[in-house]
């Protein structure tokens, strides 16, 4: 499998659109630079603005294999890089005659369980390595990751050092639950994804919900944009707009009305308090605004 090359930012932007991802010029530019400069890209932004999807879309457009490392507190080398398959090793010892299994044999490649990072370094295919929600991993893991991203090599003491034959495209995402280490940031390109403008959000909805009535898409997007201006616990992302529009379209509606909003608002606001607050205070105003915006 060989990955496509893109001569210009426009080319990449068009490619992403074909892959059902609407990247604005800024995002397309930094994705382009990440490819050309072979540098990791750190994407930050509020929940649901399309950080994870950007990496997936890159994998589709290149094309490349998507390898995803989902980070969480306590993520360690055994789950991120490799682990020995102890049960297979034991079986192997048992199957062979006692004392005839050498250590070398036992700690050979066939007993290695490859986790995402090793997989991404070892494979011959073009790879998009998505290191998702890096801010959830611990400091120590981040330091380890920094080393991997510096040399693109991993050392398994029993086997040796494995060097990437080609550098994967690396995309890190963070929700900023904590500040990342400066050294890691210095190694990566940085991009902050803002919530999209109204026009763009409508475009995204129309892209992801084929056949959605235009007026409905516009009103739903405008309504969500209004919600984001409120002081909510968890402001809705593009994901919520898409889900909502999908639900509304499935119900056969062509525009918003109070009852419809009331009964479907749960797919937009996931926090109970948010839902309550909007129902109590803001619903009518937001609806009015959305209707005006849709003309």
């Amino acid at each position: 499998m060989t990955a496509r090359t893109f001569a210009t930012i426009d080319d990449l932007q068009a490619g992403l659109l074909d892959a059902s991802y609407l990247a604005d010029r800024g995002l397309a530019s930094v994705l382009f630079l990440a490819l050309k400069l072979e540098k990791p890209l750190l994407l930050e932004g509020e929940a649901g603005v399309g950080k994870t999807e950007a990496a997936k879309a890159m994998a589709r457009v290149l094309p490349a294999r998507l390898i995803r490392l989902q980070c969480y507190e306590g993520l360690d080398v055994a789950h991120a890089v490799y682990e020995w398959n102890y049960s297979r090793q034991l079986l192997h010892i048992r199957a062979a005659q006692e004392g005839t299994v050498s250590e070398e044999e036992l700690f050979g490649p066939e007993f290695l369980i490859r986790r995402p990072l090793l997989e991404a370094i070892e494979t011959d295919e073009p790879v998009v390595l998505l290191i998702d929600e890096i801010d959830r991993a611990d400091d120590e893991f981040e330091a380890f990751l920094l080393e991997v991203l510096s040399d693109f090599q991993i050392t398994v003491p029993e086997i040796g050092t494995i060097q990437a034959k080609r550098r994967p495209v690396v995309i890190l995402t963070s929700n900023r639950t904590r500040e990342l280490h400066d050294a890691l940031k210095r190694r990566a390109l940085f991009h902050w994804i803002d919530h999209p403008s109204l026009e763009r959000e409508v475009e995204i909805v129309r892209l992801r919900v084929p056949g959605v009535p235009e007026r409905l898409a516009l009103q739903a997007a405008a309504f969500v944009q209004g919600l984001r201006r409120l002081d909510l616990e968890k402001p809705p992302g593009v994901a919520e707009t898409i889900d909502w529009a999908q639900a509304l379209a499935a119900l056969g509606s062509h525009e918003l009305d109070p009852d419809l909003v009331e009964s479907t608002l749960g797919s937009v606001l996931k926090h109970h308090e948010d839902l309550q607050a909007v129902r109590d205070a803001a619903l009518a105003d937001l609806l009015e605004e959305a209707r005006v915006a849709a003309g």
């Binding site: 010029r25 530019s29 400066d182 210095r186 902050w192």
Partner: peptide
């Protein structure tokens, strides 16, 4: 805009 995004991605590390 190309110059802007390129320098921004390289020079900025936090929001």
């Amino acid at each position: 805009d190309d110059v802007y995004w390129t320098l921004r991605a390289n020079f900025v590390t936090r929001r």
